[in-house]
Amino acid sequence: MRIPILKLHNYLLISIQTEIDDQTAIKFQEDLLAKIHKTGATGVVIDLTSVDIIDSFIAKVLGDVVSMSDLMGARVVLTGIQPAVAMTLIDLGIHLQNVPTALDLEQGLVKLHQELGG
């Protein structure tokens, strides 16, 4: 199973709709980095509205993908993390300290726009 990555001008948009298993997560990480490399995108929004569980492994993959994209010059914003998911992450002791967040896709785009000074 592959997670589709959409391109919109300089941005890449991803909406994760499925239950993510470890393979899908790792595949997604590779796909996204390849896509950033190919398109030269400067901003990425990953929308997690439909994701109802993030365990420590998925959290690690997401955190890593943010750092890796940063290295490649693309700023990533995570959007739509559900309250239940946020509370679970806090209980797990995962704070994703350096990961920018926004309430929804729209505000994620606004945030990217502001940060990239576009």
Partner: peptide
């Protein structure tokens, strides 16, 4: 439910 599912996952 999310807490339990996450714990199971771990």
């Amino acid at each position: 439910q999310a807490r339990i599912a996450t714990a199971v996952s771990e």
